[in-house]
């Protein structure tokens, strides 16, 4: 059992959802309520990580964030640290790969808010911010929760992109998925089995809790749970 890899995976998941979910709430709300030119293209772009093989995404990120790239050079100049084969690079990669898992449920949740309710909030004198905090957030909680769980679980199990961008550096980029792969390569099936079981139990528990909470919140809001 590689506790260091497990801990690194949890750390990576935490950082990813911490940065990605607030951005996704903003993006999901924008996509749900605003009509603008090129919206279909933006929505398609968000979905790309779902259909591209992880190794392809990993390759492009390696090229795009590497020390030969503009971004890579710029980050290295400012922070003195390259993004590839480093934990910070993994966080950026995980955020990019998980955009559809975060934005989609949140956008759908915002779309279910009836126009009547938002109109009523404006006519009650509420500002846009007050409407967001007092009316919209309580209604889209199930969507945000779903996005949170999906992203967290997905980052825990991420393999292809992590391997391509981060390699296999213990304590830095060696996540639990890579540790399982390493264990199998080394015929250590006991360790691989234990780590796999932990991921399996986590996935089932997270989904069960999400479903239950969504139903409870959805019931409180007087509508069916998504």
């Amino acid at each position: 059992m590689n506790w260091e890899a497990l801990s690194l995976s949890f750390k990576l998941s935490c950082y990813t959802v911490l940065f990605l979910i607030p951005l996704s709430v903003f993006a999901g709300r924008l996509l749900a309520f605003r009509q603008f030119k090129g919206k279909s293209w933006v929505e398609a772009l968000i979905m790309v990580p779902l259909v591209l093989p992880p190794t392809v995404i990993g390759y492009y990120l390696l090229v795009g964030l590497g020390s030969q790239s503009f971004i890579g050079r710029w980050v290295e100049q400012i922070f003195g640290q390259q993004l590839v084969f480093h934990f910070s690079g993994l966080v950026i990669a995980s955020m990019l790969v998980n955009i559809p898992f975060a934005v989609q449920p949140i956008q759908r949740a915002f779309e279910t808010i009836p126009e009547d309710i938002r109109d009523a909030a404006s006519c009650c004198g509420m500002s846009a911010w007050a409407t967001f905090i007092k009316v919209e957030v309580p209604m889209v909680w199930p969507g945000i929760l779903t996005a949170f769980v999906l992203c967290f679980s997905h980052v825990l199990g991420e393999f292809g992109v992590v391997l391509m961008l981060g390699g296999n550096i213990a304590g830095e980029t060696k996540t639990i998925s890579i540790a399982i792969y390493d264990s199998v390569q080394a015929f250590d099936f006991k360790a691989a089995g234990t780590m796999s079981l932990i991921l399996l139990l986590f996935a089932i528990s997270a989904l069960a809790i999400t479903t239950s909470l969504s139903r409870r919140i959805g019931g409180q809001n007087g509508r069916r749970t998504r």
């Binding site: 009836p114 126009e115 009547d116 309710i117 109109d119 009523a120 909030a121 404006s122 006519c123 009650c124 004198g125 509420m126 500002s127 007092k134 009316v135 309580p138 209604m139 409180q220 809001n221 007087g222 509508r223």
Partner: peptide, 30 residues
């Protein structure tokens, strides 16, 4: 709409589902 200070009742009432009847009325009492 906030500056016009109107009372508006939408077709499907537009009640805030997470707030009680009393809290819904309070929401309009800013």
């Amino acid at each position: 709409p906030q500056q016009r200070h109107i009372g508006y009742m939408p077709q499907h009432f537009g009640l805030f589902p997470n707030l009680t009847a009393e809290q819904n009325v309070i929401a309009g009492l800013d």
